[in-house]
Simulated scan of single mutants.
Amino acid sequence: GSLMRRRDRFDAILIETTGLADPAPVAQTFFVDEEMQTKLRLDGIVTMVDAKHVVLHLDESSECKEQVAFADVIVLNKCDLVTPEELDQLERRLRGMNAVARIVRTTNAQVELDAVLNVGGFDLDRALQQRPTFLEPEYPFEWAGAFHFDEGNATLVINDGPDPEMTVMAWKLPNTTADAIAEVQDRVAVFFSADPQEIAPGQGFTLGTTPVSVQLDRGGEKRFLLNLPERGAYALFTQHHPDEFSMRVEQQGHVLAAASEHVFNPEHEHDEEVTSVGLEFAGEFDQKKLNSWLGELLMTQGTDIFRMKGIVAIKGAAQRFVFQGVHMLFDGRPDRPWGETPRSSQLVFIGRNLDRQALHDGFHACLA
């Protein structure tokens, strides 16, 4: 209280908690206490991770996982005590649990103040600027290739590989550049996560928003037909890297090479309880529907949602709506006007037992 009245005399308040404290109650104070909310903003949560010993904690302690999930910045300390390979592996694992935090590597906790102050944790845009691929760990496919096809059928020839089936999707592109793949990858990811339609060797499939699961349990080469309505640029998205199945693409007897391709960062640690789910929607939300759905979501799953952030386009509103939540607490406010920027919404959830498809469907139902 008395500290707040001397507001003009300080720039920032740093709150340090003990080793494995739950950051939620501390963060919640900034959303619940009215005086705090009017005079302060929560700039960001910084978590220090011991590169040498954290793996033990990650395996045993849910508090440790929660701390990683809550962070806006993760300071990865004692980097001199582990090999570069171990460090990369650890960073991948942390990324899988929190796709939006900035990771700073340090030795003896030597860290520039700029890295941990004025984090702008609230500003999702910053996360996007620092890491345009912040949805990357969420991609349900490992590979995409852009091809130029003639009208008619193309054939996917797939051999035995590590899995008895593989999910595949084809998507129309404006051209065969890597940028064209990047433009559609978030949208495709949303559809790719749906239940696929199974197709057997020799059968065909078309472009569309339903993924197909090609059945690979027979030995030898298997051929699947892709029906193409017109000549032009198309992307193929595959759940695994084509090399693992010696996959090739043919049309009219010729093998086609991808004009450009992208290998995604697959998330293999499916046993990790804490995950991030990133969703993107074109179009605008109906504010009433969105409010009631979010309210229901927080009531039923709030304990499992550690953090959520979003930039949302609301029908009839000139400004972007920005929100962030910690467990059951929710803080949202209008932000700068959309102006010429195309209206699209991005939402990120970090938590335990998150069901990507259910989250997608729930939000999708709130579109105006």
Rank of each mutant, 00 (worst) to 15 (best):
D123K: 06
R92G: 11
L117V: 06
D160H: 12
D22M: 01
G219Y: 10
A127V: 15
A259S: 11
A27D: 05
W293L: 08
V26Q: 03
G316K: 11
E66R: 06
L297G: 08
G145V: 09
P334R: 02
R41T: 12
E63F: 04
I311Q: 01
D59I: 02
R248D: 03
V214G: 07
V104R: 09
D160S: 14
A154F: 01
L226Y: 07
M328E: 14
R248F: 08
L359C: 09
R126M: 10
T238M: 13
M169A: 11
F192H: 09
F237Y: 14
D217R: 11
N159I: 00
V157P: 00
G19T: 07
H360Y: 15
V263S: 11
F363G: 04
A146M: 12
H254G: 00
D59F: 09
V212H: 15
A313G: 13
H240G: 07
F281K: 00
L14H: 01
G278F: 09
L290R: 03
L207Y: 04
F363N: 08
D43A: 11
V68M: 01
G1L: 09
L76K: 01
I103F: 10
D33R: 05
A182S: 14
Q203E: 15
I305L: 13
Q129N: 00
N118Y: 07
A115R: 05
Q346R: 15
F205A: 09
D22A: 01
I314N: 04
P211Y: 03
G145F: 09
T176K: 02
L236Y: 06
K315A: 15
P137Y: 04
D80E: 15
G362C: 13
T177Y: 05
V212L: 11
S260H: 04
G145M: 11
R320W: 01
T275N: 10
N291E: 15
L216K: 06
D33L: 06
T176G: 02
G120S: 12
A257I: 01
L359E: 12
F10T: 03
T167H: 04
A144H: 05
A235P: 05
H364Y: 12
Q37M: 11
A71L: 03
R9K: 08
E273M: 08
V249K: 02
A101T: 13
I13T: 05
L113K: 02
I15E: 13
P196T: 06
L216C: 10
Q185C: 14
V249F: 03
I45H: 06
P337R: 10
R105W: 00
R336Y: 05
P337V: 08
G295C: 00
V116T: 00
A27K: 06
